[in-house]
Design a protein around this nucleic acid. Structure first.
Length: 438
DNA sequence: GGGTGTTTATTTACCC
DNA sequence: GGGTAAATAAACACCC
Protein backbone atom coordinates (compact mmCIF):
# COMPACT_ATOMS: atom_id res chain seq x y z
CA UNK A 1 0.00 0.00 0.00
CA UNK A 2 1.34 3.33 -0.94
CA UNK A 3 1.57 6.04 1.55
CA UNK A 4 1.49 9.37 -0.11
CA UNK A 5 2.19 12.68 1.41
CA UNK A 6 1.01 15.58 -0.58
CA UNK A 7 1.60 18.64 1.43
CA UNK A 8 5.23 19.45 1.96
CA UNK A 9 6.76 18.52 -1.36
CA UNK A 10 3.88 20.04 -3.17
CA UNK A 11 4.11 23.20 -1.21
CA UNK A 12 7.80 23.39 -1.83
CA UNK A 13 7.32 22.91 -5.50
CA UNK A 14 4.58 25.41 -5.76
CA UNK A 15 6.57 27.83 -3.77
CA UNK A 16 9.18 27.72 -6.42
CA UNK A 17 6.72 27.87 -9.21
CA UNK A 18 4.79 30.95 -8.34
CA UNK A 19 4.14 33.70 -10.79
CA UNK A 20 2.30 33.68 -13.97
CA UNK A 21 5.21 32.92 -16.22
CA UNK A 22 6.72 30.27 -14.20
CA UNK A 23 4.97 27.44 -15.73
CA UNK A 24 6.98 27.56 -18.85
CA UNK A 25 10.19 28.57 -17.30
CA UNK A 26 10.08 25.92 -14.73
CA UNK A 27 9.88 23.15 -17.20
CA UNK A 28 13.57 22.70 -17.28
CA UNK A 29 13.99 23.27 -13.64
CA UNK A 30 11.59 20.56 -12.77
CA UNK A 31 13.21 18.18 -15.11
CA UNK A 32 16.59 18.54 -13.65
CA UNK A 33 15.95 19.24 -10.06
CA UNK A 34 13.15 17.09 -8.86
CA UNK A 35 14.47 14.13 -7.13
CA UNK A 36 12.86 10.78 -7.20
CA UNK A 37 12.03 11.16 -3.62
CA UNK A 38 10.40 14.46 -4.19
CA UNK A 39 8.39 13.07 -7.02
CA UNK A 40 7.18 10.15 -5.10
CA UNK A 41 6.13 12.13 -2.13
CA UNK A 42 4.08 14.58 -4.06
CA UNK A 43 0.63 13.82 -5.26
CA UNK A 44 0.97 15.94 -8.27
CA UNK A 45 2.97 13.42 -10.17
CA UNK A 46 0.16 11.01 -9.54
CA UNK A 47 -2.41 13.40 -10.73
CA UNK A 48 -0.44 14.06 -13.87
CA UNK A 49 0.29 10.46 -14.36
CA UNK A 50 -3.33 9.59 -14.14
CA UNK A 51 -4.17 12.14 -16.69
CA UNK A 52 -1.32 11.53 -19.01
CA UNK A 53 -0.97 7.88 -18.87
CA UNK A 54 -4.36 6.42 -19.45
CA UNK A 55 -5.65 5.15 -22.74
CA UNK A 56 -2.45 5.88 -24.48
CA UNK A 57 -1.87 2.64 -26.27
CA UNK A 58 -4.53 3.15 -28.81
CA UNK A 59 -3.63 6.73 -29.28
CA UNK A 60 0.05 6.54 -29.55
CA UNK A 61 0.07 6.13 -33.26
CA UNK A 62 -3.43 6.93 -34.16
CA UNK A 63 -3.96 10.45 -33.16
CA UNK A 64 -3.91 13.07 -35.81
CA UNK A 65 -0.95 15.28 -35.68
CA UNK A 66 -0.28 18.72 -36.94
CA UNK A 67 2.53 17.45 -39.05
CA UNK A 68 0.72 14.53 -40.45
CA UNK A 69 -1.38 14.53 -43.50
CA UNK A 70 -4.86 13.56 -42.62
CA UNK A 71 -6.77 11.98 -45.39
CA UNK A 72 -10.32 12.12 -44.36
CA UNK A 73 -10.60 14.83 -41.90
CA UNK A 74 -10.82 18.51 -41.94
CA UNK A 75 -10.40 18.52 -38.29
CA UNK A 76 -7.38 20.20 -36.94
CA UNK A 77 -4.86 17.72 -35.92
CA UNK A 78 -4.03 18.19 -32.36
CA UNK A 79 -0.35 18.48 -32.03
CA UNK A 80 -0.66 17.89 -28.39
CA UNK A 81 -3.03 15.22 -27.71
CA UNK A 82 -3.77 13.11 -24.80
CA UNK A 83 -6.61 11.47 -23.15
CA UNK A 84 -8.40 13.10 -20.39
CA UNK A 85 -11.39 10.93 -20.39
CA UNK A 86 -11.05 10.29 -16.77
CA UNK A 87 -11.77 13.92 -16.32
CA UNK A 88 -8.71 15.31 -14.74
CA UNK A 89 -6.98 18.22 -16.30
CA UNK A 90 -3.87 17.81 -18.26
CA UNK A 91 -0.70 18.62 -16.44
CA UNK A 92 -2.21 20.88 -13.99
CA UNK A 93 0.11 23.72 -13.63
CA UNK A 94 3.10 21.82 -14.77
CA UNK A 95 4.73 21.47 -18.05
CA UNK A 96 4.90 18.26 -19.87
CA UNK A 97 8.53 18.01 -19.07
CA UNK A 98 7.93 18.38 -15.41
CA UNK A 99 5.16 15.90 -15.45
CA UNK A 100 7.17 13.52 -17.45
CA UNK A 101 10.08 13.80 -15.14
CA UNK A 102 7.94 12.52 -12.39
CA UNK A 103 6.46 9.81 -14.46
CA UNK A 104 9.89 8.72 -15.29
CA UNK A 105 10.62 8.16 -11.68
CA UNK A 106 8.17 5.33 -11.69
CA UNK A 107 9.77 2.22 -12.99
CA UNK A 108 7.92 0.63 -15.81
CA UNK A 109 5.66 3.47 -16.55
CA UNK A 110 7.66 5.28 -19.11
CA UNK A 111 9.34 2.42 -20.73
CA UNK A 112 6.55 1.36 -22.97
CA UNK A 113 6.28 4.02 -25.55
CA UNK A 114 3.63 6.03 -23.93
CA UNK A 115 2.30 9.19 -25.19
CA UNK A 116 1.58 11.16 -22.10
CA UNK A 117 0.49 14.45 -23.47
CA UNK A 118 -1.92 14.10 -26.26
CA UNK A 119 -5.38 15.47 -26.33
CA UNK A 120 -7.93 14.71 -28.91
CA UNK A 121 -9.72 17.98 -28.96
CA UNK A 122 -12.35 16.61 -31.21
CA UNK A 123 -13.63 14.36 -28.51
CA UNK A 124 -12.29 15.85 -25.37
CA UNK A 125 -14.74 18.27 -23.94
CA UNK A 126 -12.70 19.14 -20.94
CA UNK A 127 -9.66 20.86 -22.25
CA UNK A 128 -9.76 24.06 -24.13
CA UNK A 129 -7.83 23.86 -27.36
CA UNK A 130 -4.63 25.84 -27.25
CA UNK A 131 -5.52 27.86 -30.28
CA UNK A 132 -6.41 31.47 -30.39
CA UNK A 133 -9.77 32.40 -31.76
CA UNK A 134 -8.09 33.82 -34.80
CA UNK A 135 -6.42 30.52 -35.36
CA UNK A 136 -9.65 28.68 -34.98
CA UNK A 137 -11.31 30.95 -37.46
CA UNK A 138 -8.51 30.44 -39.85
CA UNK A 139 -8.72 26.72 -39.44
CA UNK A 140 -12.38 26.83 -40.16
CA UNK A 141 -11.77 28.91 -43.23
CA UNK A 142 -9.20 26.55 -44.52
CA UNK A 143 -11.29 23.55 -43.76
CA UNK A 144 -14.01 25.11 -45.78
CA UNK A 145 -13.34 24.68 -49.44
CA UNK A 146 -14.92 28.01 -50.10
CA UNK A 147 -13.04 31.24 -50.33
CA UNK A 148 -15.39 32.82 -47.90
CA UNK A 149 -17.24 31.52 -44.96
CA UNK A 150 -20.12 32.60 -42.82
CA UNK A 151 -20.04 33.10 -39.13
CA UNK A 152 -22.38 30.23 -38.59
CA UNK A 153 -20.09 27.98 -40.57
CA UNK A 154 -17.22 29.03 -38.38
CA UNK A 155 -19.24 28.20 -35.34
CA UNK A 156 -20.19 24.89 -36.78
CA UNK A 157 -16.70 23.94 -37.74
CA UNK A 158 -15.36 24.82 -34.35
CA UNK A 159 -18.02 22.94 -32.50
CA UNK A 160 -17.66 20.00 -34.83
CA UNK A 161 -13.97 19.78 -34.33
CA UNK A 162 -13.48 20.99 -30.81
CA UNK A 163 -15.66 19.25 -28.37
CA UNK A 164 -14.78 21.79 -25.75
CA UNK A 165 -16.76 24.45 -27.53
CA UNK A 166 -19.79 22.28 -27.87
CA UNK A 167 -20.16 22.36 -24.15
CA UNK A 168 -18.61 25.68 -23.35
CA UNK A 169 -20.42 28.81 -22.49
CA UNK A 170 -21.48 30.41 -25.80
CA UNK A 171 -19.54 33.46 -24.84
CA UNK A 172 -16.83 32.08 -27.04
CA UNK A 173 -19.03 32.91 -30.01
CA UNK A 174 -18.95 36.48 -28.95
CA UNK A 175 -15.21 36.26 -28.92
CA UNK A 176 -15.23 34.83 -32.40
CA UNK A 177 -17.29 37.71 -33.65
CA UNK A 178 -15.07 40.08 -31.78
CA UNK A 179 -12.02 38.58 -33.39
CA UNK A 180 -13.49 38.80 -36.82
CA UNK A 181 -14.30 42.42 -36.35
CA UNK A 182 -11.10 43.53 -34.75
CA UNK A 183 -8.58 41.44 -36.52
CA UNK A 184 -7.45 42.99 -39.75
CA UNK A 185 -6.60 39.61 -41.09
CA UNK A 186 -10.25 38.98 -41.62
CA UNK A 187 -12.19 40.72 -44.30
CA UNK A 188 -15.89 41.00 -44.32
CA UNK A 189 -17.47 40.08 -47.61
CA UNK A 190 -20.96 41.48 -47.89
CA UNK A 191 -23.64 39.09 -48.87
CA UNK A 192 -25.24 39.68 -52.22
CA UNK A 193 -28.65 41.16 -52.01
CA UNK A 194 -30.19 38.23 -53.72
CA UNK A 195 -28.26 35.81 -51.62
CA UNK A 196 -30.34 34.20 -48.95
CA UNK A 197 -29.08 33.77 -45.47
CA UNK A 198 -27.94 35.84 -42.62
CA UNK A 199 -24.87 37.88 -42.02
CA UNK A 200 -21.86 38.49 -44.14
CA UNK A 201 -19.16 36.23 -45.35
CA UNK A 202 -15.66 36.36 -44.02
CA UNK A 203 -12.35 35.63 -45.59
CA UNK A 204 -8.71 36.11 -44.83
CA UNK A 205 -6.79 39.06 -46.11
CA UNK A 206 -4.12 37.61 -48.41
CA UNK A 207 -1.63 40.34 -47.60
CA UNK A 208 -1.32 39.06 -44.13
CA UNK A 209 -0.83 35.61 -45.41
CA UNK A 210 2.03 36.85 -47.53
CA UNK A 211 3.57 38.56 -44.60
CA UNK A 212 3.30 35.42 -42.69
CA UNK A 213 4.93 33.43 -45.40
CA UNK A 214 7.87 35.76 -45.59
CA UNK A 215 8.42 35.87 -41.90
CA UNK A 216 8.18 33.27 -39.30
CA UNK A 217 5.46 32.99 -36.78
CA UNK A 218 7.07 35.23 -34.32
CA UNK A 219 4.60 35.36 -31.65
CA UNK A 220 2.21 32.97 -30.23
CA UNK A 221 0.03 33.25 -27.31
CA UNK A 222 -0.52 30.10 -25.47
CA UNK A 223 -3.86 29.75 -23.97
CA UNK A 224 -3.85 28.06 -20.67
CA UNK A 225 -5.42 24.72 -20.51
CA UNK A 226 -8.93 25.31 -19.47
CA UNK A 227 -11.17 22.77 -18.11
CA UNK A 228 -14.76 22.72 -19.06
CA UNK A 229 -16.85 23.93 -16.15
CA UNK A 230 -19.07 20.93 -16.47
CA UNK A 231 -16.14 18.84 -15.57
CA UNK A 232 -15.44 21.03 -12.66
CA UNK A 233 -18.90 20.56 -11.39
CA UNK A 234 -18.66 16.87 -11.84
CA UNK A 235 -15.44 16.44 -10.11
CA UNK A 236 -15.80 18.99 -7.38
CA UNK A 237 -12.26 18.41 -6.50
CA UNK A 238 -10.30 21.27 -5.16
CA UNK A 239 -6.87 20.58 -6.39
CA UNK A 240 -3.92 22.58 -5.34
CA UNK A 241 -3.80 25.91 -7.07
CA UNK A 242 -1.43 26.62 -9.84
CA UNK A 243 -0.82 29.98 -11.31
CA UNK A 244 -1.01 28.68 -14.82
CA UNK A 245 -1.93 25.55 -16.55
CA UNK A 246 -0.28 25.10 -19.84
CA UNK A 247 0.45 21.91 -21.57
CA UNK A 248 2.43 23.51 -24.34
CA UNK A 249 4.57 26.44 -23.66
CA UNK A 250 5.28 29.17 -26.10
CA UNK A 251 8.81 28.04 -26.56
CA UNK A 252 7.56 24.69 -27.67
CA UNK A 253 5.29 26.28 -30.16
CA UNK A 254 8.06 28.39 -31.48
CA UNK A 255 10.25 25.40 -31.99
CA UNK A 256 7.39 23.61 -33.56
CA UNK A 257 6.88 26.31 -36.07
CA UNK A 258 10.54 26.69 -36.76
CA UNK A 259 10.63 23.04 -37.39
CA UNK A 260 7.71 23.25 -39.72
CA UNK A 261 9.34 26.03 -41.64
CA UNK A 262 12.63 24.27 -41.83
CA UNK A 263 11.24 20.95 -42.86
CA UNK A 264 8.09 21.81 -44.69
CA UNK A 265 6.62 18.90 -42.90
CA UNK A 266 3.25 17.70 -43.91
CA UNK A 267 0.48 19.06 -41.89
CA UNK A 268 -3.13 18.49 -41.70
CA UNK A 269 -3.56 22.15 -41.60
CA UNK A 270 -0.85 23.79 -43.53
CA UNK A 271 -0.70 27.50 -43.00
CA UNK A 272 1.89 27.87 -45.68
CA UNK A 273 -0.22 26.32 -48.31
CA UNK A 274 -3.53 27.76 -47.49
CA UNK A 275 -4.36 31.02 -49.03
CA UNK A 276 -4.62 33.56 -46.37
CA UNK A 277 -4.06 31.08 -43.70
CA UNK A 278 -2.13 32.32 -40.80
CA UNK A 279 -1.34 30.76 -37.54
CA UNK A 280 -0.35 32.63 -34.52
CA UNK A 281 0.83 35.82 -36.10
CA UNK A 282 -2.27 37.83 -36.36
CA UNK A 283 -1.74 41.46 -36.53
CA UNK A 284 -4.50 43.14 -34.76
CA UNK A 285 -5.08 46.78 -35.15
CA UNK A 286 -2.81 48.55 -32.78
CA UNK A 287 -5.69 50.58 -31.59
CA UNK A 288 -7.41 47.64 -30.15
CA UNK A 289 -6.62 45.68 -27.15
CA UNK A 290 -4.32 46.62 -24.42
CA UNK A 291 -5.05 49.35 -22.02
CA UNK A 292 -5.11 52.22 -24.38
CA UNK A 293 -8.61 53.10 -23.52
CA UNK A 294 -8.09 53.34 -19.88
CA UNK A 295 -11.16 54.90 -18.61
CA UNK A 296 -12.74 54.54 -15.32
CA UNK A 297 -16.16 53.30 -16.07
CA UNK A 298 -16.65 51.14 -13.10
CA UNK A 299 -18.37 48.09 -14.34
CA UNK A 300 -21.19 47.67 -16.66
CA UNK A 301 -23.36 46.04 -14.17
CA UNK A 302 -22.73 48.66 -11.61
CA UNK A 303 -20.88 46.39 -9.29
CA UNK A 304 -17.39 46.96 -8.15
CA UNK A 305 -14.61 45.22 -9.93
CA UNK A 306 -15.25 41.57 -10.12
CA UNK A 307 -12.36 39.16 -10.24
CA UNK A 308 -11.94 37.52 -13.55
CA UNK A 309 -12.83 33.99 -13.87
CA UNK A 310 -10.01 31.70 -13.22
CA UNK A 311 -8.19 30.44 -16.24
CA UNK A 312 -8.99 27.03 -15.04
CA UNK A 313 -12.41 26.68 -13.57
CA UNK A 314 -11.00 23.97 -11.45
CA UNK A 315 -9.14 26.62 -9.62
CA UNK A 316 -11.28 29.30 -8.22
CA UNK A 317 -9.70 32.68 -8.21
CA UNK A 318 -9.43 32.65 -4.51
CA UNK A 319 -7.91 29.28 -4.50
CA UNK A 320 -5.21 30.35 -6.86
CA UNK A 321 -3.82 32.65 -4.29
CA UNK A 322 -2.99 30.08 -1.79
CA UNK A 323 -1.69 26.65 -1.44
CA UNK A 324 -4.68 24.51 -1.23
CA UNK A 325 -5.20 21.05 -0.06
CA UNK A 326 -7.16 18.22 -1.46
CA UNK A 327 -10.40 19.00 0.12
CA UNK A 328 -12.31 16.02 -0.98
CA UNK A 329 -11.35 12.49 -0.73
CA UNK A 330 -10.00 10.78 -3.74
CA UNK A 331 -9.12 7.19 -3.71
CA UNK A 332 -5.65 7.76 -4.94
CA UNK A 333 -4.59 4.22 -4.45
CA UNK A 334 -7.39 2.91 -6.58
CA UNK A 335 -6.72 5.47 -9.20
CA UNK A 336 -3.09 4.66 -9.22
CA UNK A 337 -3.72 0.96 -9.37
CA UNK A 338 -6.11 1.42 -12.21
CA UNK A 339 -3.73 3.54 -14.15
CA UNK A 340 -0.86 1.22 -13.49
CA UNK A 341 -2.83 -1.70 -14.71
CA UNK A 342 -3.47 0.06 -17.93
CA UNK A 343 0.16 0.90 -18.24
CA UNK A 344 1.32 -2.58 -17.56
CA UNK A 345 -0.80 -3.91 -20.33
CA UNK A 346 1.76 -2.49 -22.63
CA UNK A 347 4.44 -4.78 -21.50
CA UNK A 348 3.89 -6.95 -24.48
CA UNK A 349 5.46 -4.27 -26.58
CA UNK A 350 8.79 -5.21 -27.94
CA UNK A 351 11.55 -3.61 -25.93
CA UNK A 352 13.68 -1.09 -27.64
CA UNK A 353 17.25 -1.94 -28.06
CA UNK A 354 19.88 0.48 -26.85
CA UNK A 355 21.49 2.84 -29.24
CA UNK A 356 24.92 1.94 -30.43
CA UNK A 357 27.42 4.48 -31.45
CA UNK A 358 28.27 2.48 -34.49
CA UNK A 359 24.73 2.57 -35.67
CA UNK A 360 24.24 4.22 -38.96
CA UNK A 361 22.17 7.28 -38.32
CA UNK A 362 21.53 8.16 -41.87
CA UNK A 363 17.97 9.18 -42.33
CA UNK A 364 16.53 9.87 -45.71
CA UNK A 365 19.94 10.51 -47.08
CA UNK A 366 21.03 12.74 -44.27
CA UNK A 367 23.69 11.47 -42.00
CA UNK A 368 23.51 12.51 -38.41
CA UNK A 369 26.81 12.53 -36.64
CA UNK A 370 26.47 10.51 -33.51
CA UNK A 371 28.12 10.78 -30.21
CA UNK A 372 28.26 14.44 -29.45
CA UNK A 373 26.03 14.35 -26.49
CA UNK A 374 26.40 11.42 -24.21
CA UNK A 375 22.79 10.77 -23.44
CA UNK A 376 21.17 13.37 -25.58
CA UNK A 377 19.32 13.44 -28.78
CA UNK A 378 21.73 11.07 -30.46
CA UNK A 379 19.83 8.38 -28.76
CA UNK A 380 16.66 9.55 -30.30
CA UNK A 381 18.10 9.74 -33.75
CA UNK A 382 19.33 6.25 -33.50
CA UNK A 383 16.13 4.99 -32.16
CA UNK A 384 14.07 6.50 -34.85
CA UNK A 385 16.30 5.31 -37.59
CA UNK A 386 16.32 1.86 -36.21
CA UNK A 387 12.65 1.87 -35.66
CA UNK A 388 12.18 3.03 -39.16
CA UNK A 389 13.48 -0.20 -40.45
CA UNK A 390 10.73 -1.78 -38.46
CA UNK A 391 7.98 0.02 -40.26
CA UNK A 392 8.42 3.22 -38.41
CA UNK A 393 5.35 5.32 -38.56
CA UNK A 394 5.05 8.82 -39.86
CA UNK A 395 4.66 9.80 -36.31
CA UNK A 396 8.10 8.57 -35.50
CA UNK A 397 9.57 10.05 -38.58
CA UNK A 398 8.26 13.38 -37.59
CA UNK A 399 9.83 12.95 -34.26
CA UNK A 400 13.11 12.26 -35.82
CA UNK A 401 12.90 15.27 -38.02
CA UNK A 402 11.98 17.42 -35.12
CA UNK A 403 14.80 16.19 -33.05
CA UNK A 404 17.30 16.50 -35.81
CA UNK A 405 16.12 19.96 -36.46
CA UNK A 406 16.48 20.99 -32.89
CA UNK A 407 19.86 19.56 -32.76
CA UNK A 408 20.85 21.42 -35.84
CA UNK A 409 19.63 24.52 -34.14
CA UNK A 410 22.03 23.97 -31.33
CA UNK A 411 19.44 22.92 -28.88
CA UNK A 412 21.16 19.79 -27.83
CA UNK A 413 22.26 21.33 -24.63
CA UNK A 414 18.75 21.78 -23.51
CA UNK A 415 17.36 19.36 -21.15
CA UNK A 416 16.05 16.39 -22.94
CA UNK A 417 12.65 17.05 -21.62
CA UNK A 418 12.56 20.49 -23.08
CA UNK A 419 13.76 19.40 -26.46
CA UNK A 420 11.51 16.48 -26.71
CA UNK A 421 8.44 18.06 -25.35
CA UNK A 422 9.02 20.97 -27.63
CA UNK A 423 8.49 19.21 -30.84
CA UNK A 424 8.11 15.53 -30.73
CA UNK A 425 4.90 13.63 -30.92
CA UNK A 426 4.76 12.50 -27.42
CA UNK A 427 4.06 8.91 -28.08
CA UNK A 428 7.50 8.79 -29.50
CA UNK A 429 9.49 10.73 -27.06
CA UNK A 430 8.35 8.45 -24.35
CA UNK A 431 9.99 5.69 -26.29
CA UNK A 432 13.01 7.79 -26.90
CA UNK A 433 13.48 8.51 -23.28
CA UNK A 434 13.42 4.87 -22.61
CA UNK A 435 16.79 4.64 -24.21
CA UNK A 436 18.19 7.18 -21.93
CA UNK A 437 17.07 5.20 -18.97
CA UNK A 438 18.90 2.15 -20.06
C1' DG B 1 -36.42 37.66 -30.84
C1' DG B 2 -32.36 35.85 -32.34
C1' DG B 3 -28.34 36.16 -35.02
C1' DT B 4 -24.89 39.15 -36.45
C1' DG B 5 -21.56 42.86 -36.25
C1' DT B 6 -19.30 46.66 -33.78
C1' DT B 7 -17.45 49.00 -30.03
C1' DT B 8 -15.68 49.61 -25.53
C1' DA B 9 -13.44 48.13 -21.38
C1' DT B 10 -10.69 45.22 -18.68
C1' DT B 11 -7.54 41.58 -17.56
C1' DT B 12 -3.95 38.39 -18.52
C1' DA B 13 0.16 36.70 -20.62
C1' DC B 14 4.11 37.35 -23.26
C1' DC B 15 8.03 39.84 -25.14
C1' DC B 16 11.51 43.31 -24.92
C1' DG C 1 7.94 47.51 -15.98
C1' DG C 2 5.99 48.98 -20.37
C1' DG C 3 3.90 47.73 -24.63
C1' DT C 4 0.97 44.81 -26.83
C1' DA C 5 -1.69 40.65 -28.40
C1' DA C 6 -5.24 37.97 -26.99
C1' DA C 7 -9.12 36.76 -24.20
C1' DT C 8 -13.14 37.99 -21.86
C1' DA C 9 -17.23 40.52 -21.13
C1' DA C 10 -20.81 43.51 -22.04
C1' DA C 11 -23.62 46.87 -24.45
C1' DC C 12 -25.67 48.30 -28.44
C1' DA C 13 -27.37 48.57 -33.26
C1' DC C 14 -28.92 46.40 -37.27
C1' DC C 15 -31.35 43.07 -39.93
C1' DC C 16 -34.16 39.11 -41.06
Amino acid sequence: MLSLSCTDPLARRLDGAGGRDNNNKNSNICWSSISVDDSLTSLQWLQEFLVLGVNMPQQAHQQPHLFRQEVDSDAPASPFTGDTTIGLPLTLGKSTAAAYSRMQSLPGIVAHGHCPDEVDYKTNMHIKPPYSYATLICMAMQASKESKITLSCIYKWITDNFCYYRHADPIWQNSIRNTLSLNKCFIKVPRQKDEPGKGNFWKIDPQYAERLLSSAYKKTRMSPVQINPTLQNRLRVNLQPQPRCSCINSESQRFLREFEEATGADQTWDPHMAEGTMLGSWRVDSGSGGNKRKQSVGTRNGASKVPRRSSSPLFPVDGQKEIGTLKEDIDWVDLLDSALNRELNLESAEPLRPIMKEDDLTVWGTHITPGEDPVGTDDIHGLVENQRSNDMSDFDQETFLATAFLRARGLKKRSKATVISSVAPLSTWASCLTLNCQ
